[in-house]
Simulated scan of single mutants.
Amino acid sequence: MEHTKYFNLRGTKIFVKTIGSGTPIIFLHGGPGGEHRFFLPHMEPLSQDFRLIFYDQRCGMSEKPSNENSYSLEDEVETLEELRMNLGLEKLNLIGESWGSMLALLYAVKYTNNVNKILLNAAVGASVEGFNEFEKELFSRFTDKDKERVNEILPKLETGEAVKNELFDVIDPYYVYHVESLKRKTKTTSNPDVNRIMWREIEEHYDPRNELHKLENIPISIVQGEKDLITPIKLEDLLLRFLPKAEFTVLLECGHWSVVEQ
Rank of each mutant, 00 (worst) to 15 (best):
E35D: 09
H36M: 11
F38N: 04
F38S: 04
M43D: 03
E44S: 13
P45G: 06
Q48E: 15
R51F: 01
Y55P: 04
Y55F: 14
D56Q: 05
D56G: 10
Q57Y: 07
G60E: 00
M61H: 14
S62A: 07
S62D: 01
E63L: 11
P65R: 06
N69S: 12
S72R: 08
S72A: 08
V77G: 05
E82L: 15
L83P: 11
L89W: 07
E90K: 11
L92P: 06
N93H: 14
L94S: 03
I95S: 13
I95Y: 12
I95N: 12
L103D: 00
A104F: 14
Y111W: 12
T112H: 04
N114R: 13
N114G: 08
L119F: 07
L120W: 00
N121G: 14
G125S: 07
V128C: 06
G130Q: 00
G130I: 09
E133A: 15
E135Y: 13
E137Y: 02
L138C: 09
F139G: 08
T143V: 05
D144S: 11
K145Q: 10
D146G: 08
K147R: 11
V150G: 01
V150K: 05
E152C: 05
I153N: 04
I153D: 03
P155Y: 01
K156F: 13
E158L: 11
T159L: 01
G160H: 01
